[in-house]
Design a protein around this nucleic acid. Structure first.
Length: 953
DNA sequence: ACAAATACCGAG
DNA sequence: CATCGCTCGGTATTTGT
């Protein structure tokens, strides 16, 4: 409490009081929130009340997506997504109906993971199939516009053109659905396949059938039946022939991509190994405590397979003479024009100048006899496992996994002071022998007294060798190229060349660095990098490989997923979908780690101006500019919908034409153990927690003195006496009086509003200072907002779907309709409720009719366009409404229909450069400061209203 | 001046 | 047929207040 600004304190009290007023009489027990505040006696630990008594329908259905997120999703209303929401609503409603009727409410999940689309005329009808699918856990899409979005297509007949189009889909007959449901499990799609596997002969048959099919023509047109299909279906069809390709629009893309990505494997292997060894070490030190090595002279061993992938992949090919034939690992064979990366190549290749990472195309030129092998990810894992087993068996002082094929050991205590060199050699050579015997792969070993030198020694040892650097260090380092130093890559080398050795023509060596002043290096590269470079050049390295000495340093601090290949989208809806899928993956990992995140970062790659639409590498990202934005979460989360929604917002904040998007990455940081995060579930719960426990001290505002601090007496009275008591003392301490309330704060904004003319100017002024990433209004729009189709959904009949209804007996039909009405009523939006009561409720908030705010605004309004909202155009009323709305919906989030309505209204205001726009936005921002949860959908609103997408160049 | 956000880098 | 350009930690630089 005492950490709050006066400002916020007043707002807080007001909001409590309003909450109390709004909720039922029994809310007198509001301060009994002991779950979150176990020990603290303060009755001020009031949590903004979730009215627990409201029976949310999704409670019945267990852990499924609640309507909250259904609402969220519709912020980005597209037809398809609206459909999903309707489907979910329908499911909830149906669940409720079943419950009322005492039926089993268990959710069938036969079609879980299936995304179904119906093509053309079918029996049963499309509507029936639709309901059957969603009632059994599947997803249904009416449009195939997002190419590849469907996992199954249901059809009875296909035109030849459609046949070609759907060649790589699972196209099944309707019977597949019926049988699956009847038998209670997903039937093999291939048994119902409409398109026969390409055996030539049968295909002809189909063609014949099609030509005689009276529906054929109609089939071809059915796309326009449903609505004008703007999106062309062509892109999925490759230009050269009729085959399809899996790109980011396909639901399985992520899976497929990761399954085949070497870099993804490398990263996950590494993370897994680190985790495994970390846990192992923690286990050990629990039982026996940590024993720091007593040895004075450290011996570090670096062991690494020789061209790991190539070696292992070649094990399956006894026909290849690995020592004498050039062999590499890459996708897709050995075609001379291939743009596949070479993941690993053997030493024969390297003689020709072939390098890892090179394209096959290029390598083929250098070495025409090149043999390309397939990846064998399982084989790599097996070999690695054996390596680590062997290493563990040697009982070194410590092991640090560097990667799947590479590890660092410290063996100081295993070696005596006598005959050190021989002992080390004996140890390493037997290690090498053992690994070869067990894996049939060669390793090299480098040894020295620190990590840096061990690493450099390893380089010298390769391939299939051993080197112990124990003397003549300077001489050893002298002729090694700087780029061999760990941490020195292209950028640093370039900087060296351009800023330190402008005349040097050949490769820069460590020896040349040795001649440089430390200060000089620090000037060019910064303190850390400069120092490191200097020390490395002199063979100095303090890197520790002992996990045990500092486990914290080896624990994972972030999780991210990057996809910069195959990213091709047509619409923002597809991107939204994709972001959710990525978030799902992230959250899987989070949950596995039992962690939650409080910060989400979205990074995108956008095609650089002038770069070709399709880069040379097939489905590659080509030359791109990268943009990133991050956002703090009010509540740490491991829910993919929360993370995904955040990502969607961030994407809109960055503003990128979907067609130009080439890379997506979501990163989560500021990880918190799951379970700990509930203590800070709501900002108010943090009030009397120690300051350090508050969220990064984030909400500390500058201490702006306020003139008129006081609290409306009526407001105060509405609080429970116990709280009043405590508040009184705190308020006294702060010189805040309880009495007639006068409008306060931020007059400055109104002035600014009136001194500017253009909307964009106004917007600039009020853009938030606090979180640049959340400033959705940075750019001045040049075009009008896209006219959003805020068509209210049709009445209940359309929702429940007539076709299905009609197939039911009349008595049941009536019942269902009535229940639907009831359902709708209980899920009424806040605005609906207000409307039903016939008038807007009065709030205590800005009571004074002569407040500067209302005076100014009401006056102004006469001169400006009159824009009605909820039957009023009076700014003070509208502001009140907004207050009320936001506060009321802070927990559940706003109803999507309210949002739509409000967005339309705001858009109008903005379109007319109405000053109220800025006032409302500022008002919402203010509230968001008190209720950080509101920030999120404020962002969404302002983002949507803005002309989108704004493209950055 | 400081902290947070963003940008960039390198490794395997 | 193509092709699967990841993911982490560290550091520098910019931005906002």
């Amino acid at each position: 409490m005492s950490t709050l600004e006066d400002d916020e304190l007043i707002e807080l009290i007001t909001s409590w009081s309003q909450k109390r007023k709004a909720s039922s009489p029994k809310a007198a027990d509001i301060n009994t929130n002991d779950a979150d505040q176990p020990s603290h006696s303060s009755s001020l630990s009031f949590q903004l009340a979730q009215e627990d008594n409201e029976e949310s329908v999704d409670d019945l259905g267990g852990d499924d997506k609640g309507p909250i997120f259904g609402d969220y999703a519709s912020y980005f209303a597209t037809k398809a997504q609206n459909q999903q929401i309707e489907d979910e609503k329908f499911l909830e409603w149906n669940k409720k109906r079943q419950q009322v009727q005492g039926q089993d409410t268990k959710v069938s999940s036969i079609f879980t993971g299936c995304v179904v689309h119906v093509n053309g005329y079918t029996r049963p009808s499309i509507a029936t199939i639709h309901k059957l699918i969603i009632l059994n856990g599947g997803k249904f899409i009416h449009h195939l516009s997002s190419k590849g979005a469907a996992t199954h297509i249901i059809a009875e007949r296909l035109t030849p053109r459609k046949q070609a189009e759907f060649k790589n889909y699972k196209v099944v007959r309707p019977q597949w659905v019926l049988d699956s449901i009847e038998r209670g499990s997903l039937q093999r799609w291939s048994d119902y396949s409409l398109i026969e596997v390409d055996y030539g002969q049968q295909r002809l048959q189909f063609r014949n059938e099609d030509q005689t099919n009276p529906h054929a023509k109609q089939d071809d047109e059915d796309e326009s039946e449903i609505g004008p299909s703007i999106e062309p279906m062509s892109e999925i069809v490759d230009t050269t022939d009729g085959t399809t390709t899996i790109d980011s629009k396909h639901p399985d893309f992520l899976k497929q991509f990761f399954a085949k990505s070497r870099l993804h494997h490398l990263s996950t292997w590494k993370a897994d190994l680190r985790l495994e060894f970390l846990n192992m070490v923690i286990e050990q030190s629990k039982s026996q405590g940590h024993m720091p090595t007593g040895a004075s002279h450290r011996i570090i061993v670096h062991v690494d397979f020789d061209c790991f992938f190539a070696t292992v992949s070649a094990l399956k090919r006894p026909d290849i003479d690995f020592q004498n034939q050039p062999v590499c690992v890459s996708h897709g064979g050995t075609k001379p024009g291939s743009t596949a990366d070479i993941a690993s190549c053997n030493y024969v290749c390297r003689k020709y100048g072939v390098k890892n990472g090179m394209w096959v195309r290029q390598a083929k030129k250098l070495c025409p006899d090149l043999i390309c092998l397939d990846y064998d990810f399982l084989g790599y894992e097996t070999a690695s496992k054996k390596l680590y087993e062997i290493l563990l068996g040697l009982k070194p002082d410590c092991i640090l996994p560097v990667s799947i094929d590479e590890a660092l050991l410290e063996i100081s205590s295993l070696i005596d002071d006598e005959n050190t060199v021989e002992q080390v050699q004996g140890f390493c050579e037997s290690l090498r022998r053992e690994i070869y015997e067990q894996t049939r792969c060669t390793v090299s070993v480098g040894v020295s007294h620190n990590v840096l030198l061990a690493k450099l020694s390893l380089r010298k040892a390769k391939p299939n060798g051993y080197f112990y650097l124990h003397e003549n260090f300077e001489e050893f380092l002298h002729n090694i190229p700087v780029s061999s130093l760990p941490g020195v890559g292209g950028a640093i080398v370039n900087k060296l060349i351009s800023q330190v050795f402008p005349h040097s023509s050949s490769e820069i060596t460590i020896g040349e660095i040795q001649g440089l002043e430390r200060a000089n290096l620090e000037k060019v590269f910064g303190v850390k990098t400069g120092t490191k470079l200097f020390e490395y050049a002199h063979g100095i390295d303090h890197t520790s490989i002992d996990i045990n000495s500092n486990p914290e340093a080896f624990t994972r601090k972030s999780i991210s997923i990057d996809i910069n290949w195959g990213i091709r989208f047509d619409s923002i809806a597809q991107i939204d979908e994709f972001l959710f899928r990525v978030s799902e993956e992230i959250c899987n990992k989070l949950q596995l780690m039992k962690m939650c995140t409080s910060q989400v970062t979205l990074k995108i790659l956008k095609r650089s101006k002038g770069a070709p639409i399709e880069p040379p590498k097939f489905l590659g990202c080509g030359q791109c500019d990268s943009f990133s934005k991050s956002s703090r979460l009010g509540i740490p989360s491991d829910d993919y919908r929360t993370i995904g929604m955040e990502a969607r917002i961030l994407f809109r904040n960055i503003g990128c034409d979907p067609l130009e998007l080439r890379g997506v990455s979501i990163q989560v940081t500021k990880l918190i153990e799951k379970g700990k995060e509930v203590q800070m579930r709501l900002p108010f719960a943090r009030l009397d927690a120690p300051k350090t426990a508050r969220l990064e001290g984030k909400e500390q505002h500058s201490d702006t003195p306020m003139e008129d601090k006081d609290i409306d007496a009526q407001v105060f009275e509405q609080l429970p006496p116990s709280i009043q008591e405590e508040l009184r003392s705190e308020l006294r301490r702060r010189n805040i009086t309880i009495g007639e309330r006068t409008p306060k704060r931020k007059r400055v904004y109104y002035q600014q509003v009136f001194t500017r003319t253009g909307a964009s100017e106004v917007i600039r002024i009020i853009s938030p200072r606090k979180s640049p990433s959340k400033s959705p209004l940075k750019k001045s729009p040049t075009k009008k907002s896209p006219v959003k189709d805020v068509k209210r959904r049709e009445t209940k009949v359309a929702k429940v779907d007539e076709d299905v209804l009609n197939e039911l007996p009349p008595s049941l039909r009536k019942e269902i309709l009535e229940e639907w009405d009831e359902y709708e009523r209980t899920n009424m939006t806040e605005f609906d409720r207000l409307r039903e009561r016939g008038k807007l409720p009065e709030t205590k908030f800005h009571n004074s009719a002569n407040s500067i705010e209302s005076l100014v605004m009401d006056d102004f309004e006469c001169k400006i366009n009159l824009i009605m909202f909820q039957k009023t155009s009076q700014p003070s009323k509208i502001i009140k409404l907004v207050d009320r709305w936001m506060k009321k919906t802070v927990e559940k989030g706003p109803h999507h229909r309210d949002l739509e309505l409000f967005q339309t209204y705001l858009s109008k205001l903005k379109h007319h450069s109405h000053p109220l726009y800025a006032v409302i936005i500022e008002r919402m921002r203010l509230i968001s400061r008190i209720e950080p949860l509101c920030q999120r959908w404020l962002n969404i609103l302002t983002t949507l209203i803005q002309e989108r997408p704004t493209y950055r160049d």
